[in-house]
Nucleic acid binder design. Structure first.
Lengths: 328, 328
DNA sequence: ATGAAAGCGCTAACAG
DNA sequence: CTGTTAGCGCTTTCAT
């Protein structure tokens, strides 16, 4: 029997007799035969893999995100090559190149950005130009928002609604902690903060006592503690789950109480927020949905959609629990 | 210039002049050249990828685990093909086959097991026999503990030490919740429970009111609530983080208080445990270390170590916080 | 130090 | 419906 017949049998090619197919498959199973994927990829130019780059594998965000991606890729028989940049532009570049050399059919990435504003936008442009689809999620490149397919949330709007809620509760001096303030998401969240200040005529001129911009690091714990100790605010908004945890830790350490001494609104929801003391009022991103949508956009491209870039913006939701209360 | 010269230049082959190498690399960069990995793999029989199968991508366990794996693989230029079985033996088998067809150089897996005891042990055996190394982590196959390389923790010992702690605190009736009691880890934890009962002469004959074996599912919330309502125990041990959360939820719902009405010891530590009300006393697995060790074992095999199977057993640690107190 | 040539395992066009 | 053949892009002898 010729190789081509075998190939056709195994790939359920239409022009093959049912009987031959059966026999081939049986033999294959018996011999424990497995196709050598690289030969197939070499021939067909499709590896059936997509590169998934996360920005920090320790962030619980990626549990739901990856779940969303996997669930939409699996039925289409695409596999994930997982990479993590750890918010390091160089490492991200390394992985992008590696993924390319593994012949991925597409790339999903939340691009990072260092303190000098350096990104891998040019590398990603080049890749896109060679015909390998790229979908950004969580973050896009500032000033080039429409160049790539992307799935993000309305970050400014999310903070705005949190600010509105606090304002309604009577808070006039509201603080915010911005980690990694060079990131797109954080910039947008800060923008929402400023908009809200203007809209509700809140004082935010004395920035240092209301806005903490330190990057995520070891020293951040001390900075946050200091920030809260000198607090000139009655309510505080965080911009990710890690910071929420640090705020709870600091408040506890300072012998203060949430929400009596300080109202807090966290960012990113995880089930654990329910069990915090007190349960955290948070801005919840539809993380699973972000994963699904991102993967679907990519599949669309892989299926040959070739229109102008899709820019999907999902909405975050304010989940009211016990950490933010009316001011006395 | 011939293809072979280019190949040698790009791969830092020794027999090539410095000048030629420089020129080739320059040209490659300029043209945005990327090697076509599948052709290389086809020729060399090494894909530089390893398949990583997790049992449930939503479990926070895998954040630290994957971090550990990635950090040891990255410097060696191995990439991860990520798969998730969702505790489904069939899905696991599908992924194993897919990974094989992607020519992975090795596989890391925490094998799942359905309610009838069915596993993919035979499939994994076959793979090992073809020369592709397999390393198990978190779980091994009962009765075949020494057949594969593996990295686990001393599950029985972990529960035993928790029981000892509770016993020292004066607890005589201690309950335990076993989700998915067909899994290796859970069986071992139950075994530790029984050993402790014997050792400390605790009554555990009336199993139904002390041991809950229900599998993880939607209905489990109700079952746990029921279990706690009818509690004949003064202290309760859980066997994973999800259950810990459910216990906290149920206790709250029932209007009871931890630790006054019930002492609780959780399983698996996450930073959030610090902020629970009250902070959770837990058995902490060295998850990051499990990831590192698993990946290192695999790298060893990939480097040609070919001795008898390595069986690494790490120790868990009891982290004392506020959810378990002496009985009045 | 470089080039020529073969071949990895598969698929697809073409013939029959 | 099946077989023959060529070739995907790379690495690797072997020869020079």
């Amino acid at each position: 029997m010729s190789p081509s017949t075998v190939s056709r049998a195994l790939n359920d090619h239409p022009r093959i007799s049912v009987e031959t197919k059966r026999r081939v498959k049986e033999a294959a199973k018996e011999l424990g035969y497995f196709a050598f994927g690289s030969a197939r990829t070499l021939k067909t130019k499709r590896s059936m893999t997509v590169g998934v780059i996360v920005s920090d594998i320790r962030n619980p965000f990626f549990l739901d995100f990856l779940d969303g991606v996997e669930r939409t890729l699996f039925p289409r028989r695409y596999k994930m090559l997982l990479a993590t940049s750890n918010e390091d532009v160089e490492k991200e570049a390394t992985y992008i190149k590696w993924l390319l050399e593994h012949d991925v059919d597409g790339i999903i990435v939340s691009p990072t950005c260092d303190k000098d504003g350096k990104t891998n936008i040019n590398l990603l442009r080049k890749i896109k130009k060679t015909g390998i689809p790229v979908v950004l999620y969580d973050r896009v490149f500032e000033g080039f928002e429409n160049e790539f397919d992307s799935v993000t949330i309305d970050n400014a709007g999310a903070i705005l609604s949190a600010m509105k809620y606090l304002y309604t509760l009577g808070h006039k001096r509201i603080g915010i902690i911005l980690a990694s303030s060079n990131l797109y998401t954080i910039k947008k969240r800060y923008q929402g903060y400023l908009e809200a200040c203007e809209l509700f005529r809140l004082d935010c001129r004395n920035e240092d006592t209301l806005v903490l911009k330190s990057p995520l690091s070891e020293e951040m714990d001390a900075e946050i503690e200091d920030f809260i100790r000198k607090a000139s605010f009655t309510a505080l908004i965080t911009t990710n789950h890690t910071i929420t945890k640090k705020v709870y830790k600091s408040v506890k350490k300072l012998g203060m109480k949430i929400p009596n001494d300080l109202s807090v609104i966290g960012f990113d929801d995880v089930e654990e927020n329910l069990f915090f003391d007190p349960p955290v009022t948070v801005i919840r991103q539809p993380v699973f949905q972000i994963g699904k949508t991102t993967a679907m956009l990519l599949l669309g491209r892989l299926d040959g959609e070739d229109l102008k870039p899709h820019r999907v913006v999902l909405n975050a939701e304010l989940v009211k629990r016990k950490s933010a209360v009316p001011i006395e």
